[in-house]
Simulated assay, not measured.
Amino acid sequence: MTVCSDIQVEPLPGSAKRGSVFVLFEWPAGWSRDILDGDTFSQDLTSRIKATLKQAGKGTELQLIRRPGREGRDVGQLHRCYLVWAEQETMELVLLRGPEDIPALDLSGPGKNGGEVITQPLLLVCTHGKRDVCCALKGRPLAAELNDHFGNSLVWESSHMKGHRFAAVSLLMPWAYSFGRLNAEAGKQLVNAALTGQYFFPGNRGNGKLAPGEQVAELAVAQQLIDAGEDLHYGALSVVDADPKGQEHRPVAVTHEDGRTWHVELKKKEVSGVISSCGDKPKTSSVWVASEIKSPQLR
């Protein structure tokens, strides 16, 4: 059986799920195709959850999560809910009675919901089969193996996180980096690196706080540094795009916390044969690629 994620014609950089604030709510019951379409929760509750996310501002996202395997189907009386502020690299855990408690959350910043600060990272693996079969076929086995290896609530199954054509796909918290085309060995390396905050490049689709072109620029510099043997951690690079609505060949500035700045030239590239979802016809897509990285300058 050929599925959309078997067609690997697109580059991964620049395809990350966008978002800077995340509500990760433990919900082992059924996930409809879109978790906010009114079929997972009631129409009334869905409307109130949407209003809460909208009020919190652009870039606020809900992900449903569950533990891999049978144990993930038994929650008990309280549901774990992780609140993530990726800009601050902060994650908190609150316990909720059910989804009806989500609209009461204050998502304006950390420390406002009586939550426990969580210092270990979380890896969310998309297993949302109702959205696309790829995530069931490739995501569930990966989540199960990583959970067996690490345990301790490090790895969770998750609802759709964009890019099932890159399955198995995952989202690393609290930094909001997306990864794609992961196998079990790469997944283990990714989690081990995350435990010490080390930047992991293989399969990296980009930083969800950034626009696609900015994601590409950051990853281009990160690859150069890692290939040169430098020790790089999440948060060490910042990105400024002076002309985010610009056309081709615009430079994007990537700055290291030590003061070095690279200017990355971007250009658009057409990729043919892209199958967005299983059952779709192939199409041509336009992606950003890094065409030149100028030598770093010191501030």
Rank of each mutant, 00 (worst) to 15 (best):
D241F: 05
L190S: 01
G180H: 09
K281N: 08
G246P: 06
E230H: 15
V271L: 01
R70F: 08
A176Q: 02
S295D: 15
G197P: 05
S32H: 04
P103G: 07
K130Q: 02
V216L: 06
G151I: 01
V21L: 07
Q297D: 08
S272G: 10
G279W: 01
A56I: 06
V117C: 12
Q120K: 14
A56V: 05
A29K: 11
P141C: 07
K269H: 10
L12N: 01
A143H: 09
L53I: 04
L62T: 04
G259T: 07
Q223I: 01
F200R: 05
P13N: 03
K268I: 04
R48P: 06
E265A: 15
L219H: 11
A144I: 06
H256T: 08
E248T: 06
L24D: 15
T90S: 03
P11D: 09
Y177Q: 02
P244R: 05
F179E: 04
G208H: 06
G206P: 14
G213L: 04
L24M: 14
T119M: 14
V287F: 11
P251S: 13
E89G: 03
D280M: 03
R18I: 02
D34V: 02
A144H: 12
S178Q: 07
V3P: 00
H164N: 07
K188G: 08
K130W: 02
A236W: 13
P141H: 07
V169H: 10
I102E: 03
S42I: 13
D101E: 12
V221G: 11
S20G: 15
T2Q: 03
L237K: 09
S32V: 02
P103T: 00
V252D: 15
E116M: 15
I7Y: 09
P13H: 10
E265L: 15
H149V: 06
S153E: 11
R205H: 14
K245T: 12
V216T: 08
P68I: 06
K58F: 08
G139H: 02
V216C: 04
F200P: 02
M1H: 07
S285I: 04
A253E: 14
C134L: 04
R33V: 06
S286V: 15
P28W: 00
L137Y: 00
G180Q: 12
P99D: 08
A236Y: 14
K54Q: 09
Q8P: 02
Y82S: 11
E292V: 14
V287L: 09
D37I: 08
G59I: 02
L195Q: 08
